[in-house]
């Protein structure tokens, strides 16, 4: 059909593809633009005041809680996930039964919605272990939630390390453990980092699981056994109270900015990982 007559099917298909892409872009850009236009004018210094009061719904305590929560979840999930990835990529035989079972478990975990994590965290950490609604319960719940993400990305990064690195290390007389820690992990570091940063993004954006485990106390929590709300939960509470709509928009702007930052960092790390994989032994 090329050249001569005009083929209507081709034109319709082309238009459908272009229009859909335009729709998708419009949805994304429209939403971000809407929030930015409504929110940016309401970002005021008072919103970052040290204390939260019912008149001035400062987000500083929520930001502090978010940092603590992220640190806690990463402290638990990152080492566990990376060690698990080392087992899967460096020790286990490919396709062995153990690997298959671990992979199924990890995929199941990855598919579980956050509200079920929240419910489990509530039943296990809050009720069964008697931790109460606390930052600690929230952190443990989120660490389980991000575990599959960290494991999978770290495993992929380790598998991308060329085998000649390991062979070189073995040839120099290094053992397996030394090879893992001195050769494979450093070479895979950028890829692992990209996954960990994605996990940070999930922690920062999480709300459903945290409402049931860490509660919604508006103060910066004085101890890990106290309840505290992160940024996302803070924003949900503000929007459901409905008294501070402008401040809610401002919160949304901060959350979007955080998401953009995390996104940029993660893709920077991923690019670095790609370059390292392509560069081979040149650098």
């Amino acid at each position: 059909m090329r050249g001569g007559r005009i083929d209507p099917v081709s034109i319709v298909l082309r238009i459908a593809a272009c229009a859909s892409a335009a729709c998708a872009a419009l949805a994304g850009v429209g939403m971000i633009g809407f929030i930015l236009i409504k929110g940016v004018p309401h970002i005021a210094p008072s919103l970052f005041a040290w204390r939260y009061t019912s008149d001035n719904v400062s987000m500083t305590p929520a930001i502090i809680n978010t940092v603590i929560m992220t640190a806690m979840a990463l402290l638990i999930a990152a080492p566990l996930g990376i060690l698990a990835a080392v087992y899967l990529s460096e020790y286990a035989r490919r396709g062995s039964r153990a690997v298959r079972i671990i992979r199924v478990a990890s995929e199941t975990l990855a598919g579980i919605p956050s509200i079920i994590y929240g419910l489990f965290g509530f039943l296990f950490f809050v009720v069964a272990l008697r931790w109460g609604l606390s930052m600690l319960a929230g952190g443990f719940t989120l660490s389980i939630m991000i575990l599959p993400l960290v494991t999978r990305t770290a495993e992929e990064a380790l598998l991308a390390v060329p085998d000649m690195y390991r062979e070189g290390s073995f040839a120099l007389g290094a053992g397996r453990v030394r090879t893992v820690f001195r050769v494979a992990l450093p070479a895979a570091a950028p890829g692992i980092l990209a996954g960990v940063i994605l996990a940070v993004g999930r922690v920062v954006g999480e709300s459903a699981a945290l409402i049931l485990t860490a509660g919604t106390a508006a103060k910066a929590s004085a101890s890990l056994m106290k309840s505290g709300r992160t940024m996302a939960v803070h924003m949900y509470n503000l929007s459901s109270e409905g008294l501070h709509i402008n401040q809610t928009y401002a919160c949304a702007v901060v959350l979007i900015a955080l998401a953009a930052m995390i996104n940029a960092l993660s893709s920077w790390a991923a690019r670095k990982a790609e370059r390292a994989a392509l560069g081979g032994g040149n650098d």
Partner: peptide, 24 residues
């Protein structure tokens, strides 16, 4: 231009989506 925008959409928290839905 489009590819980062899509990654960005994946990273935006669901509360923000919900709030956008509620207000727009």
């Amino acid at each position: 231009f489009i590819s980062p925008a899509i990654s960005m959409m994946a990273g935006i928290p669901s509360v923000v989506y919900g709030f956008f839905g509620m207000t727009a």
